[in-house]
Amino acid sequence: MAKLYFYYSAMNAGKTTTLLQSAYNYHERGMRTLILTPALDDRFGEGMVASRIGLKANARRFPGDEDLLALVEADIAARGPLHCVFVDEAQFLTKAQVWQASDVVDRLGIPVLAYGLRTDFRGELFEGSRYLLAWADELQEIKTICHTGRKATMVVRVDEHGRAVTDGPQVEIGGNERYVSVSRAEFKKISEGTGRIELQQTVLPLGERE
């Protein structure tokens, strides 16, 4: 039986890597998939999803006002039977699009696997995540760790000094080095100004020359 799945996590937990691996498993068995990605996320070029470890695949971009049920029906009409739909960065779905994703499951009998963040840098739910948590048939957390060693469940946006940024738009594409996954306890300390983050190096350090 087809289901709507929501795989959620903090940042840099390997959501896209897991999505691409799952899609590969379908293709390995001769089954056709459709990967969807929000049009506002253009970090890797138009029509492409990519993971931090170098995996990538073609994807169908969609704007916030596109009907996902109609999109999937059109894809089937043009290209034939479809066995699974994957949604990357699912936190950016609208309420209507989460409902349409559930229609893909309920009307067409096609499983939908959505991958995304649960909360933003203020600790508040994204719209897409809110309704996926409410309506998905199955929820699964993809775990990652805080620099303290605890499980990371939240995301902070930091400035160049590692201090928390608490104002600004909810969505800020790019600049991933400004977002850090932390535990709830660490999120409180950093947000209250009693803690800070040592920003990660963007490249591996060179070893000392002999």
Rank of each mutant, 00 (worst) to 15 (best):
R60I: 07
M11C: 10
I35A: 03
G168S: 04
E177W: 01
I190L: 06
M31E: 15
G116T: 12
L93A: 11
F44G: 07
L199R: 09
R130L: 07
A2Y: 01
A2M: 03
R130C: 05
K3R: 12
Y7P: 00
I110L: 11
T144W: 05
Q91S: 13
A50N: 06
V203L: 08
T17Y: 04
E177Q: 08
Y26L: 07
F121A: 13
P63E: 14
R150H: 15
A2W: 00
Q201L: 14
E141W: 03
H83L: 04
D65A: 08
A57K: 01
K151L: 15
T166G: 07
Q100V: 01
I110S: 10
L71G: 09
D106R: 11
K143C: 00
Y115A: 04
D167M: 03
G54R: 04
V180F: 05
G54C: 05
T33V: 15
A101D: 04
N12I: 00
V49A: 08
T37P: 01
R107Y: 03
E46D: 14
I110A: 09
R157E: 06
D137C: 11
T18S: 05
Q21Y: 05
G162D: 08
L206W: 02
K95R: 15
A136I: 08
A90V: 10
L19R: 00
R122L: 05
I142Y: 00
A90N: 12
G30H: 05
L139M: 10
G123Y: 08
E73M: 15
L132R: 07
V104I: 15
T166I: 09
I76W: 02
L113A: 12
A2G: 03
K3P: 02
M48P: 00
E46P: 14
G14F: 03
P63T: 15
L55R: 11
L36N: 12
V171K: 05
F6L: 08
G149V: 13
Y26H: 14
R163D: 13
F62G: 12
S9K: 04
E177G: 02
R150T: 09
L206R: 13
G174P: 06
A78F: 02
R209D: 09
M31Y: 13
Q91L: 14
I35Y: 01
Q97S: 11
E160C: 03
V155P: 04
G116H: 11
E138Y: 09
T17D: 02
L20I: 04
H147L: 10
L139D: 03
I145N: 10
L40D: 10
I110W: 04
R130S: 06
L34T: 02
A134L: 12
D106N: 13
P111N: 09
Y8F: 15
T144I: 07
A152N: 08
A101Q: 11
T202Y: 00
Y7N: 14
Q200G: 03
L206D: 07
A77L: 09
G168M: 05
E208L: 14
Y26K: 10
R61F: 09
K15A: 01
Q100G: 02
L132Y: 06
A59F: 01
Y5G: 02
Q91C: 11
F92M: 14
G116N: 08
